[in-house]
Amino acid sequence: MKKQQRLVMRTAILLVLLAAIGYTIYTNFFTEKTAVAVGSTAPDFVLTDLKGHEHRLSDYRGKGVFLNFWGTWCKPCEREMPYMNELYPIYKKQGVEILAVNVGEPKLSVEKFAERFGLTFPIVIDRQDQVLNAYNVGPLPTTFLIDKNGEVKQIITGTMTKEDIERHLESIKP
């Protein structure tokens, strides 16, 4: 009887210790350092695009959103832009929007960039880094795939091929 008690006690204590260690290791090494985790609701934001239209993320409920953070100096961003541009009209018809968030560069630079590549999807500029902070974006490009319920499905850092983009757009079709 006493032996049984002791075993239960020891098991319980060891489990508590194991849980504490496991939690620490897990949060330190296996969770995304981004403030926005996969499965959570994407933080709402309002930004103005080059044409002066306001875009509020929550207005896109019911549609999938391909949210791309980029900068004009970032070569990997530049590489994937034409693919996004090519796929944009196709998937727009199917209820997936592409929204590109520039990380606070001068409007002039962004406009020239958009002109150069003939970009048709809306490009908004995060002048005060507010959205960048809210999404805790580190390296560029970073793309958040948001489904019709506003939930983050996947976070992609680094450049994508056309096939990648197509697959990702496909995955958030409403």
């Binding site: 204590i13 210790l17 260690i21 620490t24 290791i25 330190n28």
Partner: peptide
């Protein structure tokens, strides 16, 4: 900040308890 260093510290904690 490495996992094994944190693990070592954690094991010292377990040993302590």
């Amino acid at each position: 900040g490495s996992w094994w260093y944190i693990l070592l510290i954690a094991l010292i904690g377990v040993s302590l308890v």
